[in-house]
Simulated assay, not measured.
Amino acid sequence: MARTKEFDPDTALQAALELFWRRGYEATSMAELVEELGIARASIYATFGSKRELYLRALERYGEQHNPVLLAELSQPGPVLPAVRGLVRRFAREAGEDGADGPGRGCFVTNTAVELAPHDPDAARRVAASLGHLETVLTGALVRAEAQGELPGGRDPRALARMLLVLMQGMRVIGKAGDGTARLRDAADQALALLD
């Protein structure tokens, strides 16, 4: 007779996501996962597989939580450019915020792009899919802005979306280095001036 799980896998996955997001893949040990999730090592392996598989599932969960929020922000009826500006400024502000233990934790996708994607094809595919989603959402918003007469003529919505994507992800990296608030704000302001 199979034993029933004595923990909620969904709650455990969320706890793993938070730990990996704070510490990164390499710096997170199985012992820390056992402690953070409050379940035995054997249960982690039986439910999620290896540490790497758990990390990749946590990365997918991150996208499931954050992608709909970005889409909702940029899909509201009415003027589009205020929402795009707000999103870029929010990325700059959040990237510049420090936590209680130092520079911010950044974006889980960006962290994965830096730490794992160069040598892990599965992580690289997930990062590419997430960045592709953000690019698509930004492009869609800027196409709407162009159609509504908010974006000056002659601008390429897709190229602008790509520039904003690279800027926003770069801001996350700069933010992790700490003390970049003025840099982040200035970069956001300069990039957003291209939308005028």
Score class of each variant (00 low, 15 high):
Val109Gly: 06
Ala83Arg: 14
Thr47Met: 05
Ser29Asp: 08
Ala128Cys: 09
Gly78Asp: 03
Ser130Glu: 11
Arg158Pro: 02
Gly106Asp: 05
Gly24Thr: 06
Val173Pro: 03
His66Asn: 13
Gly24Tyr: 04
Gly106Arg: 12
Thr4Asn: 13
Pro103His: 00
Trp21Thr: 07
Ala145Phe: 02
Val80Pro: 01
Asp8Ala: 11
Val34Met: 03
Arg3Ser: 12
Ala177Val: 15
Ala191Cys: 10
Gly170Glu: 02
His119Arg: 14
Ala15Trp: 02
Cys107Met: 11
Asn67His: 13
Glu26Asp: 10
Gly180Glu: 12
Ala123Leu: 10
Ser50Asn: 01
Ala95Ser: 15
Pro9Phe: 13
Leu19Ile: 02
Asp10Phe: 03
Leu142Asp: 08
Ala145Val: 06
Ala2Met: 11
Arg183Thr: 15
Thr181Asn: 12
Arg105Gly: 03
Arg105Ser: 07
Leu195Asn: 05
Glu60Tyr: 00
Ala42Tyr: 03
Asp101Phe: 11
Val173Lys: 04
Thr110Asp: 09
Leu74Ala: 05
Asp122Thr: 10
Leu54Ala: 11
Val114Ile: 15
Glu64Cys: 02
Asp179Gln: 14
Gly178Pro: 08
Leu59Pro: 05
Leu151Ser: 01
Arg52Met: 07
Gly106Val: 09
Gly154Gln: 06
Glu53His: 04
Leu33Asp: 01
Val109His: 08
Arg183Leu: 15
Arg105Ile: 10
Glu73Cys: 04
Ala113Lys: 11
Ala177Lys: 12
Pro121Cys: 09
Ala182Ser: 14
Gly140Val: 13
Val88Tyr: 06
Glu35Pro: 00
Ala83Met: 02
Ser75Glu: 12
Met168Phe: 01
Leu160Asn: 06
Gly86Val: 00
Met30Gln: 10
Gly38Met: 04
Leu142Pro: 09
Leu54Arg: 05
Arg90Phe: 06
Phe91Tyr: 12
Ala42Leu: 03
Asp8Gln: 07
Lys176Met: 15
Arg23Lys: 15
Arg41Gly: 02
Gly24Ser: 10
Leu165Thr: 14
Leu151Ala: 04
Cys107Phe: 04
Leu184Asn: 13
Leu165Asp: 09
Pro118His: 08
Thr139Leu: 00
Ser43Leu: 04
Thr110Lys: 09
Ala147Cys: 03
Ala147Trp: 04
Arg41Pro: 01
Leu138Gly: 01
Thr139Trp: 00
Arg85Leu: 03
Gly104Ile: 07
Lys51Gln: 05
Gln190Leu: 15
Thr4Lys: 14
Pro79Ile: 00
Gly140Tyr: 13
Arg41Val: 00
Gln76Lys: 09
Val84Phe: 12
Met171Phe: 04
Tyr45Gly: 01
Glu53Asp: 14
Asp120Ile: 08
Arg90Leu: 13
Asp8Thr: 04
Gly86Met: 09
Asp101Asn: 09
Arg93Gln: 11
Pro157Trp: 12
Gly106Thr: 10
Met171Asn: 03
His66Phe: 10
Ala92Thr: 10
Glu18Ile: 02
Val84Glu: 10
Glu146Ser: 13
Val173Tyr: 00
Pro152Leu: 11
Arg185Ser: 14
Val69Arg: 14
Ala182Asp: 15
Pro157Ser: 11
Pro77Lys: 08
Pro152Thr: 07
Tyr45Gln: 09
Leu134Gly: 00
Val84Trp: 13
Leu70Asn: 09
Asp10Cys: 03
Ile174Pro: 00
Arg89Ala: 04
Leu19His: 12
Trp21Gly: 05
Leu17Trp: 10
Asp8Met: 05
Gly140Met: 05
His66Met: 14
Gln65Lys: 11
Arg158Trp: 09
Arg89Ile: 00
